[in-house]
Structures are given as structure tokens and as C-alpha cells.
Design a binder for these strands. Structure first.
Length: 569
DNA sequence: GCCGTTTTCGGCCCGACTGTTTTCAGTCG
């Protein structure tokens, strides 16, 4: 799977061309890179079929370059460009406030090629002598270097959540604020956020800006204007706030929620209909007459579109679907009747089976499924064939003590050789079998795909657990040909897990959508190891929504009898 | 370099903030 590699090269080409003041090409390369990055299919397969130019944004010339790279593993055009610039662009581009124009000037005048060179030039105070630069720019760049060196990783959705709630609560209580909302990638339900974006309606913007930039956890004020400010909290999280008037709130929300790619498409669509769209509203191109902007719904309606939920706004076909009134009726947390994949003290959980089941009942769920570890996973006390009887006996006792359905099951290791450590016959005694990869994760895509698919073909399993095995900010996904895995899962009626554990969030939304397009079905889980983890299934709902899922696609939303039927081996 | 209910040529989203400027370029989202 070379999609990522190809996309990265195209992005780098775009950056170099931008540095060379080439017009328009950079955005063409970027658009193609973006499209290739979000493909569900292996680009090599598309190339084999001769369909590279079918990818939106990929035309004759980029297709030829992609083909050359796939065929030979090299791209002389890219090598030539790299030689021309002699600059470590990837490194310098990370520094905030440093773009192509400044990088070019720094190279021309001071021979700065990388962060080290920039640091030296700053220490000699040569940077502030350049035209267009000054003392402050030099200081900002030095701080930027420090920031890159100690760069915090992306923030998990759950760690941003309490900050969002606290800010909303505080600001909504101020009498001079009429409305306050969170936008950005957080609003789109992404698994991680780079920063947080807020939007407020107020007749006294200066007061809002003052309160915002002096919040108690602010470590640094990055920008402060009359209507827009940015701060960084002591934990490194950047927060932006913009104040708008009531009439602009919808258009401003739309702009701030993004994604940028969605906004660009929406603005193009507006232009094609004789309107221009900005954060201030929808206007006619001729005469700049205000049409609407108070609510997002009005804007979408005026553009001839169904309302598009924030989670769908990734420019992955939602605008075309909204034009045809074919958007999905997305699931929500209240549609979820129960949770799969929960651990207890029988393996590495910290609460008993009974405590977990009682908590689920308290959360007004209708079922819980226990799936303690079975197999050589790296924990001290996994289930074994010997202990399985006692475990099932204990589950039977719990069933008599709670008023919800309790499913028995295991999370069993997919072994290196594509088998499971328990024969199919014994698996059939369990209600829910989840098979997951935990060990021997460094394999080629071919081997790993074979390993996972072989288990799906040979054993009576119900759910494929955390399919990519990624851990956010810690571990990349395993090598896997996902399309093949999805096809196999579909063929054998195996549900794909959407694991809501905050640092897993696996499958991610974009893959969920690809699998859904292939006809797969899904099971939401919390991967709870304690009673406090049970609510994590709602994070899985975010991913399900980002993957365009409806109730019919998600096992947890079905009636109990339908679920039991689907789990029969 | 890509693309087409204006177009096979001539467009390509839009505006705020900062720092350096005496009116604007660069960067960012």
C-alpha cells in the first residue's frame, strides 16, 4: 500500500513549487495528494486497472508521475526539484509563522537550509536585518523552533472534552455573551484535535476577548484582535475564539467547523449559483447583497443542499449526496442499546463481572457483552481453556442478579500463524467471539492480511476487534490490506468493531465509510477495563457518524432478538 | 496542473491578524 508514500511526495512537490513561486500547480498537487491519501483502495490496484485519472484532482500529468513512481520506485521530477531547492522544507515548514516566502528569503540571503541553520542565524541576529523581518519576527521564529522541538502530540478527543465543557459553561454564563459554541475538528467528532475553535455572539467583543485571553489556564496569548484571538493553555493546547454578530452566526459556524476542504467545495458551489460565501454570510456576487447567514441550515438550504451534519464535512462526497438528498440518517448515542467488548477481573479489568453489569444497567443499557482476554496476549492473567468453565459459570450467576441481557464471550488472540488458541467447537459455546491482533504486529501487509482473513474464514467469530490495532500518539496501524479484510468480513457476516477506547478509536471514521460502502456491518464497543470506561462507546458513535452509519448498519442498535439471531453460529 | 449547468481556455475560496510597513505582504485557518 503506497498511498501514503505517493501522497507525501505530491505534498512535498507542492511545497517546493510554492517556494519557487510557481502559480496554481501547488494547489493542484495538494488536491491530488489529498485525494490519494483518503483512497480506500490500494493505488497500485487503481493503476493496474489504468484508472489513475479517475481519481479527482489527478489528471494526465500527475497520473504519469504516479505511474512512474509505482513502476520504478523513483520520481526523477521530484529528485530534480529537491536538488534545485537544497532546503529541508519538511523541517522548516513545521515552524509556525514561517511560510514559503520567508523560507526563500532566508535561504537566498543567509543560506538557511534547516532548523539548525535558522537557529544559528538567529543567534547571530542576522535574521532581523533582513527586509520585512524585524526583532519581533526573530523572536517569534526562535519560539517557533522551541515549539517544534517540544511539540505536543495531537490531543485526544476525551482530553479536550472537559476543557470544551468548562469553557462553554463559563462563557455562556457571562451576561454579555448571547451565544457560545465549539466548532473545528472537535465539532466534527475527530478522534484527535490539533486545537479548539470557539465562536461567540456578543455586542461587546472587547469584553469577550479580555475574558478569553485572561482565562486562568492561559499560558500564552498568541494573537489578540478586536474579534479574533488565540491562546495556548499550559498543557500546550491552542484555543481560538472569534466573536461575531447574530446575523453572521450560521455562516461563521460553518466556516469554523470546516473542514477546510468542505468549505472550499461549498464556496465553489456557491459561486456556481451566483453567490459568494464567507464567514460573514451568503451574498450575491453582483451587488454583494446579503442573502442569509443566521443559521447553517438556511445556508445549506439556499445552496440547494440537505443539511450536512458536521461529522460528514470532510469533502468525501457529502456535498454531492446532499444535492441528491441522499445523506444518511446518522445514528446517535441514544440509538445504542448495549455495549460489546468489556473486560473484568477475569483478565485485565479492574471491576468484577457483576460490578460491570450493574453499571451498564445504571446507564440504562439493555445488554452488556463480556469479552475477557483469551490467549497469549501480554497480560498477567488471560483466560485459559481451564478457566473458561469458571468464567462462564460466574457470568451465569451475574445474569440472575441484573435486569439486562448479559452476553458471554472472549476477546481471543489472532495468532501469528492465522489460527486461534481455542478450537471452533469451544468457541461455539460463547455468545460473542471477538478476534483481535495483539502480538507479532510487525508483518508485511501480505502476511498480516492473510493471517487476519484466515481466522475469519476458518473460525466462528462474530467481531473483528480493533482492526488496525493502532494506538493514537503511540503506535501506527498494523500493515493490512483493509479492502481485502472488509470483503472477507462481509462474506462471512463478521461485524467490524468500532472500538471507542479513547486512545484506540479503531476503526477510524474514514475506514468505516469505506467498509460501509463495501456493505460491511459494525459493532460498537467500549473496550472497558473498568466501570468508568463504559461510556466510551459514545466516542465510537462519533466514528460511526463520521463513517456515515445508520442504525441498520450497527449491531448495537438492533432489537435484542435480532442481535441474538445475528450472533448464532 | 486540473477542470467544465459560464468555459477545451481561463479561471482556481476568503478574510483576520501580525509585523513590518507608511499602504502592505505573509501566514494561517
Amino acid at each position: 500500500m503506497k498511498n501514503g508514500e505517493v501522497a507525501k511526495i505530491l505534498y512535498n512537490i507542492a511545497d517546493i513549487l510554492e517556494l519557487q513561486n510557481v502559480q496554481w500547480k501547488p494547489q493542484a498537487y495538494r488536491k491530488a495528494a489529498q485525494a490519494i491519501e483518503s483512497l480506500s483502495e490500494d493505488i497500485e490496484d487503481i493503476w493496474q486497472r489504468g484508472e489513475l485519472e479517475e481519481i479527482p484532482g489527478v489528471g494526465e500529468h500527475i497520473a504519469a508521475k504516479v505511474e512512474e513512481f509505482l513502476k520504478t520506485g523513483k520520481l526523477p521530477y521530484y529528485e530534480k526539484l529537491k536538488k534545485e531547492v537544497k532546503i529541508n522544507l519538511e523541517e522548516l515548514n513545521q515552524i509556525p509563522s514561517l511560510g514559503p516566502k520567508k523560507i526563500k528569503l532566508l535561504y537566498r540571503k543567509l543560506n538557511v537550509k534547516d532548523i539548525k541553520g535558522l537557529e544559528e542565524a538567529i543567534q547571530k541576529h542576522n535574521v532581523q536585518k533582513l527586509a520585512g523581518f524585524g526583532e519581533k519576527t526573530e523572536k517569534t521564529l526562535l519560539e517557533g523552533i522551541q515549539f517544534v522541538k517540544t511539540k505536543p502530540q495531537r490531543f485526544l478527543y476525551v482530553s479536550a472534552l472537559p476543557i470544551v465543557n468548562s469553557i462553554l459553561k463559563t462563557f455562556r454564563a457571562y451576561p454579555f455573551i448571547h451565544q457560545m459554541e465549539v466548532a473545528g475538528s472537535f465539532r466534527r467528532g475527530k478522534e484527535t484535535v490539533g486545537d479548539l475553535d470557539f465562536l461567540a455572539v456578543s455586542a461587546q467583543p472587547e469584553k469577550v476577548m479580555h475574558q478569553f485571553t485572561t482565562m486562568k489556564d492561559v499560558k500564552e496569548v498568541l494573537a489578540k484582535g478586536t474579534t479574533k484571538s488565540s491562546v495556548r493553555l499550559s498543557n500546550g493546547l491552542q484555543i481560538d475564539l472569534r466573536v461575531v454578530n447574530d446575523k453572521e452566526f450560521g455562516s461563521a459556524m460553518n466556516y469554523f467547523i470546516g473542514s477546510k476542504e468542505h468549505n472550499v467545495e461549498l464556496r465553489k458551489l456557491a459561486l456556481s449559483k451566483g453567490y459568494t460565501l464567507s464567514e460573514y454570510g451568503l451574498f450575491t456576487v453582483k451587488g454583494k447583497k446579503w442573502i442569509t447567514g443566521k443559521t447553517e441550515s438556511e445556508i445549506y438550504q439556499k445552496l440547494g443542499l440537505q443539511f450536512i451534519e458536521p461529522e460528514l464535512r470532510e469533502n468525501h462526497g457529502e456535498i454531492a449526496a446532499a444535492q441528491k438528498k441522499k445523506l444518511p440518517d446518522l445514528i446517535s448515542s441514544k440509538d445504542v442499546h448495549g455495549i460489546f467488548h468489556n473486560h473484568s477481573t477475569w483478565s485485565d479489568g479492574s471491576n468484577s463481572l457483576l460490578e460491570m453489569a450493574q453499571k451498564a444497567e445504571e446507564l440504562e443499557l439493555k445488554f452488556i457483552s463480556f469479552n475477557d482476554h483469551f490467549g497469549p496476549v501480554g497480560i498477567t492473567k488471560p483466560l485459559t481453556e481451564k478457566r473458561l468453565t469458571g468464567y462462564l459459570h460466574e457470568i451465569e450467576k451475574v445474569r440472575k442478579k441484573v435486569g439486562i441481557r448479559v452476553f458471554s464471550g472472549v476477546e481471543i488472540d489472532i495468532l501469528k500463524d492465522g489460527t486461534l488458541p481455542l478450537p471452533a467447537k469451544r468457541l461455539k459455546e460463547l455468545d460473542v467471539v471477538i478476534a483481535s491482533v495483539h502480538l507479532a504486529t510487525k508483518m508485511s501487509a501480505v502476511e498480516m492480511t492473510k493471517r487476519v482473513c484466515s481466522v475469519m474464514e476458518k473460525y466462528p467469530i462474530d467481531i473483528l476487534g480493533h482492526p488496525t490495532d493502532r494506538v493514537l500518539n503511540e503506535r501506527p496501524p498494523i500493515n493490512l490490506n483493509l479492502d481485502v479484510v472488509f470483503e472477507t468480513a462481509k462474506k462471512h457476516n463478521i461485524f467490524l468493531e468500532i472500538n471507542g477506547s479513547p486512545s484506540r478509536m479503531d476503526l477510524p471514521g474514514e475506514h468505516v465509510k469505506n467498509a460501509r460502502d463495501l456493505g460491511c456491518q459494525f459493532a460498537l464497543s467500549a473496550d472497558a477495563h473498568a466501570i468508568g470506561h463504559l461510556p466510551y462507546y459514545s466516542l465510537g458513535v462519533n466514528m460511526a457518524r463520521r463513517g456515515w452509519l445508520e442504525k441498520k448498519d450497527v449491531l448495537n442498535c438492533w432489537t435484542l432478538s435480532k442481535i441474538e439471531n445475528a450472533l448464532k453460529k
